[in-house]
Design a protein around this nucleic acid. Sequence first.
DNA 1: GAGCACTGC
Length: 741
Amino acid sequence: MALPKWRKGPGIYNESKNLPIYQHKATLQQAVKDNSFLVVTGETGSGKTTQLPQYLHQAGFWSNGKIGITQPRRVAAITVAQRVSQEMHCSLGREVGYQVRFDDCTTQDTVVKYMTDGCLLREILADPVLSQYSVVILDEAHERSLNTDILLGLLKQTLSSPDKASKGRCVPLKVVVMSATLETDKLSVFLGGCPVFTIPGRTFPVTSKFSCAIGPKDTESSVYVKEVVKVALDVHTSEMAGDILVFLTGQSEIEKACDMLYEKAESIDYRYDVQDHKVEGLLILPLYGSMPTDQQKQIFQPPPPGIRKCVVATNIAATSLTINGIKYIVDSGFVKQLNHNSRVGMDILEVVPISKSEALQRAGRAGRTSAGKCFRIYSPAFWEKCMPEYTVPEIQRTSLTAVILTLKCLGVHDVIRFPYLDRPEERFILEALKQLYQCDAIDRRGKVTRLGELMVEFPLPPGLTRALLQAASLGCEDLLLPVAAMLSVENIFIRPEKQKEADKKHRQLGVQAGSCNDFTMLLSVFEKCKASDAPSAWCKDNYIHWRALKSAFSVETQLREILLRLQKKRDFPMEKFDGNKSELFRRCLCTGYFTNVARRYGVLHNGWAWIHEHSIKSPKCILHISPHRSLFDQEAQLDWVIFHDLLVTSRIYIRTVCPIRYDWVKDLLPKLHEVDVYELSSVAREEVTDEEVAKWVTKEAAKRQTDVFKKLEKRNDESSVRDARARYLQRKQERQQGKAS
DNA sequence: GAGCACTGC
């Protein structure tokens, strides 16, 4: 993102005096002095992120410790720190600094520190009372990022028990929570009824219009893609100058929409159609996260005179990136979301309707510089029936294994009664406990084991960490470190127009590795590129995403450093293994991926999935995803695989796949089949009645058919195949008609 | 035929 050039000297000073927050300066300073907790709310443009830390600095808070400000995103932490250091006339890294992963720009002088919420959480692990800080500001709390939610709970818990709070501190910690105007009462109540400060913002009105095109039943991708294209073109031909931002769910949809826009925009006759004579052409730009950086930069350039810009984007444009000059929004009403399914114990990526608050946020992107318009392609009925009020916070829809392990390491034993702003369902917590117990991170009483203590040190999902530590204890960490790194970054395989050629190259890379599965393929790509003299050119030749691979290199280095530190410091477990390398590697993976197991279609009838097309094996193979319990002891040696993740679109796909033997899982994780619900409940909290447990067990049994599995079956049954075929034929026909005319 | 949202440590 291009950084704005800030004027130096008095200019800046005057500018910040004009911000809406300025007139509340003294009151805010006093309020932080008087209260342990404070909620500050204000829309974008109120200046709270840049000014409040400076006010607290001026009020002398720095003399008792640092002023820490958290952001959910790296870019925000860095750019805001840069700006504030200029406003305070100091060089970045001195009085004002920032810290994000791989980039610590702070010194001993740093008293105003911007950082990501994940960084502060890591600091809490080392220093639970945050003795270095006098004030902690949690910014963008309304976004409800997982880390911010955890921090909120931890700070509330620490500050509300006086002996904990004063331990190792001379002056009590102050906590300020900053949020957009949404749900601030709830925050205040959560923090013991603390005062709420409201600061007016500086945004322009945005008018929203519904259309009747998409009703509650139209959830088909091709339908809404077509509709957003139509609406975007309508806007282009009938509205005054100003750029357009279209929201869709993913790369393929965006590319389809862009193709359609190109095709249709060409045929517009600008002599008659366009009201505002300044607009004579349409510049169509796709925008999604995995796009090359230089292409992304193009988005921020102002369009040539007389040309209207139309950006077709994923949700990345909702919060992460701000594009200037946007005056019109076209909102598809859908988003791709990663949800956790606690019954199957897996995460599932799926397309869902956005929430009403998210729709408002999307609309708000049109009102940054002047009044704007938002065109919703869905009907009021869709709004009412399909869209929830608020987006379910991340903590209620993701796997909690990492969170629970972190909390346990911080000494929070009772993870069910931990003060969550929004409590995750109990079965999510129980399931996380179960998985942690099964992979030996906690013991029967819910206490963190040695292995668990080692695991929490790694910035990886617990399963992957478990596999890595297994490898380290067997002396083969060199096999797992690159794989863990590769799975932590965005997809490294590029599939451009020349898909077949790319696939062929990718497959060659994998096959040369000897034993071939998707995990060894990752290893092979990593090693081959590392060994290459010109890695960036090598990537281009092989259709590999160089930016992603480069970050995999630095992640690998970081993981290796952590591992070395742990191996030196503590009595690190060591084991022996006699067998071939391929088996060793796959056994290690089993210890982490025991939740993600599938086998070739057999007798049991629960859920089916396809191996994703990108897999090196690439058989169009139907698999059966299985929760272990029912399959234990049954044909255990049949074609089993473990997989990294699960994708639900028109079908269920498993991605990054590796064949295994089921008895490895059985050997490596003897606890896999021994846990029962009662034990877990007692692990989770001290007292639990038998009645409650019984209730839970019955509920569990009733839920045997999960939502996913129901969806699966529906999608796999004959009628839906027929429907899909009919839709395909219809599309084909339309395409032909389109060409003919 | 269909085929990888976005963050973060």
